[in-house]
Each structure stands twice: as C-alpha cells, then as structure tokens.
Write a protein that binds this DNA or RNA. Structure first.
Lengths: 160, 160
DNA sequence: GCAGTTTCCATTGACGCCCATGTAATCCCA
DNA sequence: TGGGATTACATGGGCGTCAATGGAAACTGC
C-alpha cells in the first residue's frame, strides 16, 4: 500500500514522544523521506502531514502562481513558513513542537488520520466531532454527485 | 469469476477471526490487493468492502476535487479516514477492529453479501431485515419501470 | 554538574503463522 | 448409480514476532 489509510490514536509519553503508526511509516519510507513533513492545516485545528510527495505537490501549487505576486508569497509563507520536518527515531516515534501541538490543541493523545496522499494529526475528541461533520457533508455531497455518476454503478450513486 | 456474488454467514472465533468466503478471496486476489479495503457504510449499519478496484474508485472521487479545498479533505476524511485495510491470514481469515464491528453491530457472526464489484458485511439478523426491505423496494421499482426495462440482470439482484 | 535531548533496552499485548480437526462437497471407480 | 476416497473449506488452538509504550543510559549544550 502506498497510501495513508485508516485512523490510529496513540499516546504521548512523558517525554513528548508518540509512536507513528507502523503502516504510515511504511508509506513514508517508500515515499523517500526520512521524516514527516508537517504544518498546521489552513482551515482546521489539525496538522497536515506527509512525505516527499506532499512536498512536491505543494511546490507545484506555489509555482503555478505568478512569480512575485502577493498570492504566491502568502501561500508560500503560510505553507513553507510554518512547516517542519519531524524526525522519526529508531523505535518509530516522533516529537511535535510546542507550536504544532498548540495549533491542534493536542495534549496527551494524538489521532493519526489517513487521507490518501497525506494524513492529519488531531486531538482525538476534536477529530470525533470533525469526522461526524465530514460524514454528514459527504452524505449530502454524494446526492449531488449521484445523478451524474450512474455509470455502471446502479442505484447506489457515487458511494464508491 | 471476477465479481462478489452470493451471501455467506461465518462465525467469529474467540480471537476475533472470521473466515472470508473462499470465492471472495479469489476475487480479491485477482483484483490485486492482499487484503480487504473496508469502511463503514454511510447510510446503513453495515460495512462496505472490496479490493483494489474499490480503492481506485475512491481515489478518483477525491482527486476530482480541488487540492486543499474543504470538500476534498472532508471527502478524504470520511472515506480514507474511516477505512481500514484488513489483512487476510494464510488460512483465509481476517479480523475486524472494534470500530468496524461496532458500526455494524457485529458480535458473533458475520454475513458476507456480494454486490458485484464490492461486498458488504452485516450482522446476520440485521441483514435479514434489510434484505426483506430491499426486495419490497425492488418489487415496487419494477412496477414503475414497467415492461420496457427488464434489464439484463434480472430484478432480483441483491444489489441494494 | 545539570537540564534537556537522543539512543538503547525491556515489557506487554496484539497479531501473523503454523498445525490439527471436523464437515461437507466432489470425484472416482466399480 | 452408489459408496468410499479425496479435496476444499471453515474453525480451534499453540507459539513466535512485531508494534506500542515505558524507562534507563549515553550524550550535548549551558
């Protein structure tokens, strides 16, 4: 598997260490980054994270904007300026900086959420709420998509 | 056969293991996934499951949305975030996480329901009810469609 | 020398792997 | 065609390995 899938909740120990889920470590290793690229999510109290592929994507995103434009500088600042490369120790654990933890309201536990090409870090309780909302919105979204996507699918619409 | 067909009910043993129906395993193997991609159904107390083909479909759904948009993250959260890749051991058995079992109300037995390109996992009694309702709906639908639309498959298909 | 940090080792529990058994469907041969 | 043999599959249990976690030891900068 080369994608971040599923969610895992792990504990932060007294030294601030957290185990990165083994399956996520596998994806990162294949991705060719010895660490985790991580920055505060733009529109959620969470952290976005990923490997080399994510860095490349963000690079492209920025490069697509006009050079020296305000937008470009702002985007670059918002993303790169707040990013960190988290190291992973020999036991597969990492340490989040105070600034990152603070943005996500993380204290004693972290929920790792796979989103395919990247993943997010959440404070567990906040994530529960967020997930409930997301599922509701997707239910609505699916109705919209449904009509156009009947392909071979049958009455199920776009849920797949 | 490259489709999930028929229903099977198997027992969960003391370690939480269930045999995946042999015919389903065959389909999964051909599909090129060494495991089961599985997530809670959005609108039923059941689990949706499938192989690589199902993953690809979801990938396309997500990739069609703008990068870093709210919508995209929500869709990815609701789909990838709640998904798990279940492993299949050498005897053809798998283990469902507490989270998955809970969503479907599964305790001691699981009903595997083939839906063609994917399949579902149900708590047996709930599935019985669900099947009865589905058959009624199909009967109604058939009346509406009338004589002109007796498609290829036959109206009895378990496809929801 | 001390505080904070990183590396290494130990524990525990979950999961994967192996082997054994029962049962039902299938095949083969008379 | 009937009955025994064989195979395939579902199920049960023992054991080794690995991941998550806790703590000790080594290291670094002040």
């Amino acid at each position: 598997m080369d994608q971040f899938v599923s969610t895992f909740t792990n504990k932060i120990d007294t030294k601030g260490r957290v185990s990165v889920p083994a399956s996520f470590r596998t994806v990162l290793a294949k991705d060719g980054l010895d660490g985790i690229y991580c920055y505060p999510s733009l529109d959620a109290p969470a952290l976005d994270a990923g490997g080399q592929r994510l860095i490349d994507k963000i690079n492209h995103l920025v490069e697509d904007l006009a050079p020296y434009s305000d937008e470009r500088d702002q985007l670059a600042t918002a993303l790169f300026g707040t990013s960190e490369i988290l190291t992973i120790d020999q036991d597969g654990r990492t340490i989040l900086s105070e600034r990152l933890r603070e943005h996500a309201g993380i204290t004693s536990h972290i929920t790792f959420v796979g989103l395919g090409e990247k993943f997010q870090l959440w404070e567990p309780e906040r994530f529960d709420k967020h997930l409930a909302e997301s599922r509701n919105k997707v239910r609505d979204l699916r109705k919209l998509l449904g009509a156009g996507r009947r392909g071979s699918g049958g009455p199920e619409g776009a849920r797949e």
